[in-house]
């Protein structure tokens, strides 16, 4: 059973690992990857809490709209739980 998620659209300054081109896009969780220390804290030398990380699969049509080379090609990215909204 696939699980659909949307990438949050927030854009704080600083070190984050959610690519801008995926923000607001809807994909399906391809697999959970476990929990990893939050890079948004590690980057500043802070003690980091662990956050769940997921591989999320998007269609090129969802990511690029009419600019997509092929609508049914796919794009997978790793995204932390705090960047995802479950649908």
């Amino acid at each position: 059973m696939s699980e659909r998620v949307r990438v949050r659209t927030m854009a704080p300054p600083g070190h984050v690992r959610a690519p801008y081109y995926l923000r607001g896009k809807v994909g399906e969780i391809e697999r959970p990857l476990g929990a990893f220390k939050n890079p948004e804290q590690l980057a500043y030398g802070l003690d980091a809490e662990k956050k769940a990380l997921f591989r999320v699969r998007f269609t090129m049509a969802e990511v690029w709209g009419e600019r997509a080379e092929r609508p049914d090609d796919t794009l997978d990215a790793e995204l932390y739980e705090h960047w995802l909204e479950r649908l």
Binding site: R17, L53, V63, W64, A68, E69, D73, T74, D76
Partner: peptide
């Protein structure tokens, strides 16, 4: 955004029936 065009620059022209899956290595 244009993986097929990039692949052609590398000399790889994929047939139409092949799906391209791009993996953006964004975290761990």
């Amino acid at each position: 955004i244009e993986p097929r065009k990039v692949l052609r620059e590398f000399g790889l022209d994929l047939p139409d029936h092949v799906t391209v899956r791009v993996h953006d290595s964004t975290a761990d």
